[in-house]
Amino acid sequence: MVETLLISLTVFVLAVFVGYEVITKVPPTLHTPLMSGTNAVSGIVIVGALIIAGQDFGIAGAILGVVAVALATVNVVGGFLVTDRMLQMFRRGPEDGK
């Protein structure tokens, strides 16, 4: 099990570096959409929720799983929609549009 933990840690560390490089390039003007967008991405836990909810291991597990699916879905759907709503409002000035 320690081997898989080490693989997971490798992926984690590399992903944090990628995240740092990518996110530092986001301009301050987009920081609010960045937060709501990454928030939607953190809803990736929905995959975990689906895996848990999909298995048959008693009513307690099923309830926990389904509640987790619902909460994660709010996060995902709401997060991406509201980010899109914000981003469509950002427009360039008329003089640069030409």
């Binding site: 944090v16 995240g19 740092y20 990454t38 991405v41 990736i44 975990g48």
Partner: peptide, 28 residues
């Protein structure tokens, strides 16, 4: 938290997506 769930389920996609968000939040 999402990345930690990725560790629990040994799912690399959760770890990657979770750490992107973790890094983003920390930078902000």
């Amino acid at each position: 938290a999402a990345a930690a769930t990725g560790f629990v389920l040994e799912n690399n996609m959760l770890i990657i997506a979770g750490s992107l968000v973790g890094a983003s939040g920390l930078i902000l």
